[in-house]
Amino acid sequence: MNIPIEYFLILSAFMFIVGVAGVLTRRNAIIVFMSIELMLNSANLTLVSFSSYMGNSIGQLFVFFVMTVAAAEAAVGLAIIIAMFRNKLTLNIDEVNIFKW
């Protein structure tokens, strides 16, 4: 516990912001998806660091559940991407805009 917890929190914030920038700037649906995974992981890092510095395992349990949700999300999201590619023959989310008003 020699490292201040701020270091972990700043690293986590940086990774979250990189994920946000990825979602906002990239147009490839799969890379947008990977940026979302990046954001989920930065939240996990925050949970684990707080849990470890508190000496309480509840935060790590939450990370376990977040990973479950991430796995479910990846499976459904990639299925949606495959269905989208089959209909539109593109992964560019600018061209998939039938729900856009």
Binding site: F8, I30, F33, M34, E37, N41, N44, V48, S49, S51, S52, Q60, V63, F64, M67, A70, A71, A74, A75, L78
Partner: peptide, 22 residues
């Protein structure tokens, strides 16, 4: 951070299963 279980699960589930799917 002394989180051994989460570290192993991270490698197996994330780097292993989810990224192979990607």
């Amino acid at each position: 951070l002394n989180a051994q279980f989460i570290a192993v699960v991270q490698v197996i589930v994330y780097a292993g299963a989810i990224m192979v799917l990607f």
